[in-house]
């Protein structure tokens, strides 16, 4: 776990990058999430202070967007697309398979902090449906067999193909 002083230091650097501009709040939050994989409470408080925005306002923005997570997430964030196109192409079956493979429900993280599961509403790659996005990599035309293959590879700790 990253300690508090480190979180504060990193957050201050991120805010500095945007020269303390209030309107860059979302960009700042995105960078914080990139750095820690989630939005730590201390980072939000530090960012609020550095940007001159009330913490309550920062919390509003952080909880409004589903892309932001206030809970620590795993090393690999698995996002299953539940958009209309993916849904009709069997996203529900992929979700079911993914839940059984990782033994977690959407919104949860595996105890070893390797995987987090999320459902999202559309990733804009409808032609590839059903789509699963792992970290930043898009996996199109997902099948049950592909779930096993991809997750197996990640579990081994190897780099994503």
């Amino acid at each position: 776990m990253t300690n508090v002083s480190e979180i504060r230091k990193k957050t201050k650097l991120i805010v500095k990058k945007y020269s303390g501009d209030k309107s860059a709040l979302i960009a700042v939050l995105q960078d914080i999430q990139e750095a820690f994989n989630y939005l730590p409470k201390d980072a939000l408080a530090t960012a609020a202070k550095a940007l001159g925005i009330p913490v309550s306002r920062v919390y509003e923005v952080a909880t409004f967007y589903t892309a932001f997570s206030l809970k620590p997430r795993g090393e690999h964030v698995v996002k299953i697309c539940m958009g209309t196109a993916c849904h009709v192409r069997g996203a529900a079956a992929i979700q079911d398979k993914m839940e059984r493979t990782l033994c977690i429900k959407p919104g949860e993280t595996t105890p070893d902090r390797k995987f987090s599961l999320e459902t999202v509403n559309c990733v804009g790659a409808c032609a590839l449906g059903p789509v699963v996005v792992i970290n930043t990599e898009y996996h199109g035309q997902m099948t049950m067999a592909k779930v096993d293959k991809i997750i197996g590879k990640l579990k081994e700790g190897g780099a994503q193909s």
Binding site: P54, V55, S56, R57, Y59, E60, T63, F64
Partner: peptide, 9 residues
Amino acid sequence: VSAIGMSSR
């Protein structure tokens, strides 16, 4: 003081 706000949506 902006002590309160909305959360989630």
